[in-house]
Write a protein that binds this DNA or RNA. Structure first.
Ligand SMILES: NC(=O)c1ccc[n+]([C@@H]2O[C@H](COP(=O)([O-])OP(=O)(O)OC[C@H]3O[C@@H](n4cnc5c(N)ncnc54)[C@H](O)[C@@H]3O)[C@@H](O)[C@H]2O)c1
Ligand SMILES: NC(=O)c1ccc[n+]([C@@H]2O[C@H](COP(=O)([O-])OP(=O)(O)OC[C@H]3O[C@@H](n4cnc5c(N)ncnc54)[C@H](O)[C@@H]3O)[C@@H](O)[C@H]2O)c1
Lengths: 225, 225
DNA sequence: TGATATTAAGGAATTGTTTCTTTAATCAAA
DNA sequence: TTTGATTAAAGAAACAATTCCTTAATATCA
């Protein structure tokens, strides 16, 4: 079965589905290491606390299909997921704001496995400029503006809240097409530019709320049954 | 102010709404510093790229209400949001896995402003045990298990994927009530325990997908109009 | 003082996502 | 070969979230 495979890959995959996929991937890699050749959606669902039909729906976006009564072949599924999620082509990125969070990301070697390689970092603080963190040297942000032909499409935003918007605009003005925004400031995407907001504080807020709800109200059901 | 304040705080606030609130908060703090006394939902909406009615709906969960034709009083709204989000009571947390990501979080001084204080860290690597990162000393994980009366409810999970589940179970077995999970492994919440999954790779996946969709398909609309 | 425009808030309609149900396929065992 | 159990996949229904629409209030300005 293959010809009728719909090509709506980039039509409009639901964001919740996209967010679940890396979790399936991590799970499948663990199963692969354990020696599993096939994994059924039922099993994936049970081990990850989601609905079995949701697993199949999510996985169907990758274009791969499972075998009835057997499940999915682990290796091709890992390949398909990594392919679909864009983890196999290495995207290069610049980082803006080499403070505590930025330093952490520069130190991280995990991101490369997921298709992101930080190839440069910029700051305005003389104390960090010229130094090298995790093998990436920090330059003054003017150096970024000067070099128009960098060819880098992705910018990671980890500056203080106060100038996040300003730096974001500057990034866009100099060719950045996707902003991975770690500040709690919601960047308004300037036309055709992708903004991915990743505020840790947002997650903190959700966690506190659920924790308080669980403690003070007996009738509160857990997020997933 | 207070008596008429509805007590349905922990009824069931939608997660998307909770996630937007810290962003409003950051915005309001900036406005406050600029000297604004009142801010309307219209303005918040425009500056943050969301729908005005969504702003009012989101803010209504805090119990505060705005003035017709004027908007919201900035200071009380900041207070109400911080209160509602649990950023004003300081919660103490332990961190498990002082690797590159864990180190970053230990270095972070921003979290304290949002009500989270890391008061201890555990690892199994002899190279890091005994050392101090960001003022927090790293102990062997056995020390955590030994001390049952820690009184800490929140655990931050930043171990490798391979033993994330195992460490999570151990956390729960020793009194942890909320797990802030940074690994891509989806932890199945063991009954009454809150799990907040914060996988950076999930966000990366969404960003790559949107970036590729924007590049290869002309008809794709931006996430928000 | 009165008209007008702006705003918050509540409810209705829409949209998107998840869950449920059914169907078809096929592996394993009798 | 036949039966039964398990699974993926596709469509329907249910649910949740967002957007739209209406109403009521009130500052501003004529
Ligand atoms: N630290 C965390 O764990 C954490 C967690 C969640 C969110 N955040 C957010 O991430 C952002 C960064 O946090 P942080 O703790 O790393 O702050 P930080 O102050 O340690 O780092 C900010 C860095 O940005 C640099 N910078 C300032 N202006 C700049 C400019 N115009 N161009 C380039 N660089 C500039 C500063 O010199 C500094 O090195 C903040 O918005 C914070 O709210 C941080
Ligand atoms: N580094 C990043 O930027 C990044 C980004 C996204 C997600 N993650 C995820 O976060 C997790 C940690 O990433 P990392 O890059 O910090 O890895 P890392 O290997 O640098 O750190 C993991 C740490 O956990 C410790 N550890 C191992 N087993 C342990 C146990 N049983 N109990 C306590 N500690 C134990 C290790 O000694 C090590 O210090 C991984 O699951 C990774 O996928 C990391």
């Amino acid at each position: 079965m293959g010809e009728e495979n719909v090509k709506k890959k980039n039509a409009l995959v639901p964001e919740p589905a996209l967010r679940r996929m890396p979790c399936y991937l991590a799970y499948l890699k663990l199963e692969h290491r354990k020696g599993s050749q096939y994994v059924s959606s039922t099993l994936i669902a049970r081990d990850n606390g989601v609905d079995p039909t949701q697993v199949t729906k999510d996985l169907s976006y990758t274009g791969i299909s499972g075998k009835t009564r057997v499940g999915y072949e682990v290796e091709p599924l890992i390949d398909a997921l990594e392919d679909f999620l864009g983890f196999r082509v290495m995207d290069e990125a610049y980082l803006f704001g080499a403070g505590s969070l930025g330093t952490a990301l520069l130190h991280d070697h995990g991101l490369v496995q997921y298709g992101l390689k930080i190839v440069g970092a910029f700051d305005v603080n003389p104390l960090v400029i010229g130094h090298s963190i995790g093998g990436i040297s920090i330059a003054h942000i003017d150096e970024f503006v000067k070099n128009k032909d960098h060819g880098i499409k992705i910018g990671i935003l980890t500056t203080p809240v106060a100038n996040a918007r300003e730096v974001a605009n500057m990034m866009v003005a100099n060719g950045i097409k996707a902003i991975w925004n770690f500040t709690p400031v919601r960047i308004t995407s300037p036309e055709g530019v992708v903004v991915q907001n990743t505020s840790l504080y947002a997650h903190l807020a959700v966690m506190f709320n659920r924790l308080n709800a669980a403690g003070s109200d007996d009738s509160v059901a857990p997020a997933k049954k």
